[in-house]
Computed example of a mutant assay.
Amino acid sequence: MATGVAWLDAALRLTSANPAFAEHTGFGQSRLKGQTLEALAPDGKHLHELALRARNEGSATTLRDAALCAMPGHETRLDFTLTPHADGVLVEVHPAAATAGTTRVSESLRGFAHEIRNPLAAISGAAQLLEQHAGDARQRELTQLIRDEAARLATLTERLLGKRSMMATRAVNVHAVLERVAELLGAEHPGTTIVRDYDPSLPAWHGDPDRLVQALLNLARNAVEANAKRLILRSRAEAGWRDTHGQRVPALRIEVEDDGDGVPAAIAATLFEPMVSGRADGTGLGLSLAREIAREHGGELTHQARTRGACFVLLLPRNHRAREEPA
């Protein structure tokens, strides 16, 4: 189902909404136009407060599992993302994600994972043979890179197919993760300029480093596929981010900014939906999976429009602890 999108003006009153917004919430545009989010009972007051914070603080915020009741006896649970822009606040809404104990990826992602499992095994085996006959240290380094990436993708595939019980979380240096992404992208696209803009004072983050590599690599590869010649990998502390409960928590902010073609306006509202791509040969899975990884860590992934290129912002609570998922 498409992402529901609504636009709030500077006074935080709804000016327009797409059909998916009405479908998700049960409130039609004519019923909401000119009103604030407080009209979305019973959690509307909280939504309006978050919209106010997003506008005043200039940072995106989310509310998970919000209760809405457009008519008596018909309550629905939804996830909201509120992102400030020049003229007010953009509101995105999706059906509430399942809890960590019941989360399952879409059938399209499961089908994709099933299809790539055997080719990954073949790639890993071929790389092992190549390594045995490598003529110098650089060749051995590259074959090991192929094997490491095949192993990481195989682990990710098993997770998509429901074979993994929990995330492998630990204390992670996010700059080591970013350097891994830079190394992989440099091997794939040596002509791409990668600029590091790191905050060296950032503390360790608690999460699954393999999944974070996958999310960031998806963003970086998308940029290159959109004709980017220069990428900026940026890290910052985010003191003012509010989590899904509206509480202020310490977070890490990671940005992937590029000078490519940007996001086509036609898909901006559904950018993170599975199977949505701006390229004819695109799978439409990279951004969907990247946002899923952000959310399973209690974070969020958003897109910030640029006059040239694109900027994706990954916000991760510093001390999130994932719950175990059943096999």
Rank of each mutant, 00 (worst) to 15 (best):
R279P: 07
Q247C: 09
A122I: 11
F80M: 06
L47K: 01
L156P: 02
L285Y: 04
L233Q: 02
F27E: 05
V93P: 10
A223S: 14
T102E: 14
V249Y: 02
V249M: 04
L160D: 02
E115R: 14
R242N: 03
L212K: 00
L8Q: 03
A98R: 13
L14N: 05
C311I: 09
D208E: 15
S277N: 07
W7E: 08
T157H: 01
A168N: 14
T193V: 11
K33L: 09
A182G: 07
A97H: 06
A11C: 08
P264G: 01
E273W: 02
L32M: 13
Q139H: 01
G26W: 04
I194P: 00
A327L: 05
L289N: 09
L161K: 06
N319Y: 03
F80P: 00
G4I: 12
E131W: 10
E188T: 04
A97N: 06
V276K: 00
L217S: 12
L216T: 01
A294V: 07
G240H: 10
R152I: 02
G88Q: 10
K229E: 13
A239G: 12
R306E: 13
G101K: 02
R164F: 11
T283K: 03
L316D: 09
T61V: 14
A137L: 14
S165A: 14
L40M: 05
M71R: 15
R308C: 06
R53M: 08
P84R: 08
A39G: 03
L219I: 07
F112G: 06
I232F: 04
A305E: 13
A239D: 15
G125Y: 07
L233G: 02
L90G: 00
L233S: 00
A134M: 01
H48S: 12
E131P: 05
P19D: 04
R13T: 09
P119M: 07
Q214C: 12
D243L: 01
Q29H: 11
L47C: 10
I232A: 04
Q139P: 02
A70F: 11
R53S: 10
G73W: 10
